[in-house]
Amino acid sequence: MAYELYRAAGLPVLQNRTFADAATARASASGDMLLVQDEHSGLVHNQAFDPDLLSYDSDYQNEQALSPAFKAHLEAVEGVVAKHFSGRSLIEVGCGKGYFLEQLRGHGYDIVGIDPAYEGDSPDVIKAPFTRDSGLTADAVIMRHVLEHIRDPLSFLAEIAAANQGGLIYIEVPCLDWILENRVWFDVFYEHVNYFRIEDFRRLFGTVLEAGHLFGGQYLYVVADLASLRQAPLEPGPRVLMPTDFLHSIEHAVQIIQAAPERGSAIWGAASKGVIYSLFLQRAGVAVDQVIDINPAKQGRYLPLSGLRVSSPEEARLTLPEGANLFVMNSRYLEEIKRMSDGRYSYHAVDTHSF
């Protein structure tokens, strides 16, 4: 049995895939969200998830390391890695474009990576999904923002533990508690089938060496002993309580845009949060004039389902009026966004409860 928490229809199946034209973007694949908590495991997942709808390739763009704020986050992660994994051989499962892997290698770590969306030519990265047959073993495993994408996270962790014959693991995922506390409904999307709390990992592993929060509480992390992975959590854990006002900020954003349409409006951030936010605003009857992103791989391309075009900060500056309403998808980037845009807009950090 599972307890229903939240549902949403027609979400992009890969919100970080961009398209060459608006028509193709609007016709891209969609799926439904039925967020539930399993009464036996206590884990939260999308019961309507269909993994066959997902296919990661070079059109999938989720590189965040262009931001100074995110680079600072990766330095914090490296601090945790150094504390527990110094001198150990490492595997990064789901290494993405390889930025963090290269950062660790630059600091002397013996590390290899694996990811089907990898675009580089490093001999230390396998361009494929991780399986037990990948032939990779090391003293420790790093897995950042992967487990939320896996339909059966327990089986996947067991696969890693068996393939690696134990060792330590660093896991980093979005924090469900932060999403709920700040009413960040736009951080719930199809590509993330699982949503975790720290207590979930304390029930999954018998030995957790360290656990905490990073990136202003948005992410949680654990360092655990793979050999202590349990076949099932010891107990369900506490029930997840959805805020009754979880979606309240949609109406607030609509009011801001409709109150002064001549001022213009834009979203800063064309990654997951911005894709969902812009789509829901569009469905609520309003549309922003711009979606802005600093990632050159996204600029000039179009977002799934909404069909909105992504502008560079320089392009937006030429067309977006001074004083326009700018909806900032991630408050961790707010100060650098203000600096990049010379403080010329009216800024709204939409991932704060006060918005």
Rank of each mutant, 00 (worst) to 15 (best):
H213S: 15
I292W: 07
S58V: 13
Q64S: 12
E336T: 07
L334Y: 05
A76T: 05
F156L: 05
L334M: 10
Y3N: 13
S249V: 11
I169K: 08
E262V: 02
G31D: 05
V222G: 00
A138S: 02
A161D: 13
T18F: 09
A259P: 04
A232R: 07
D38F: 05
V13F: 02
A8T: 09
A25K: 00
L43A: 01
R26D: 11
A69F: 06
S122D: 04
K127D: 06
L279H: 11
I171V: 13
I292R: 04
R202G: 07
N62E: 08
V254L: 01
R332E: 04
Q15C: 09
D342P: 08
Y277Q: 09
G120A: 04
G120E: 02
L320S: 14
E251C: 00
Q255H: 00
H252M: 08
D121A: 11
P123Y: 00
D57V: 02
D115H: 06
P51D: 01
Q290C: 06
G167P: 01
S278N: 01
M340A: 13
S58K: 12
N16Q: 06
G42K: 07
S265V: 14
K83R: 15
I276V: 14
V286F: 09
D289Q: 10
P123H: 00
G108N: 09
A259Y: 02
K298R: 01
R203S: 15
A8S: 09
H348D: 02
L147E: 15
V291E: 05
Q37A: 14
W268K: 07
N182F: 06
G120Q: 01
H348Y: 11
E210C: 04
H252R: 13
Q282W: 04
Y219V: 12
G106I: 10
V184W: 11
S228K: 02
Y99A: 14
A82F: 00
R105V: 15
A65R: 03
V328R: 08
I169P: 10
V310Y: 05
I337L: 08
E199M: 12
H45C: 09
I250R: 00
G94E: 04
D200M: 12
D21A: 03
H40G: 14
P304Q: 08
S306L: 04
K273Q: 09
I267T: 12
S249C: 12
A284C: 12
S58G: 15
P129L: 01
P12H: 00
F189Y: 12
D139Q: 04
T244K: 08
Q103P: 08
S58T: 13
L35E: 15
R339H: 13
S265I: 07
A316K: 04
P313E: 06
R26V: 10
R7N: 10
C175K: 02
G212L: 05
A211H: 05
L318W: 07
L35P: 13
G31R: 03
R301D: 04
E102D: 12
A20E: 04
F186R: 08
A260N: 08
Y109G: 13
A65T: 11
A260L: 01
E172F: 05
R332K: 10
I150A: 14
Q218Y: 07
L220I: 15
G98W: 02
A27H: 07
Q47V: 00
T137K: 13
P68Q: 03
F70P: 09
A158W: 09
L147V: 14
L214H: 10
M242H: 01
V310S: 01
R151S: 10
D342C: 14
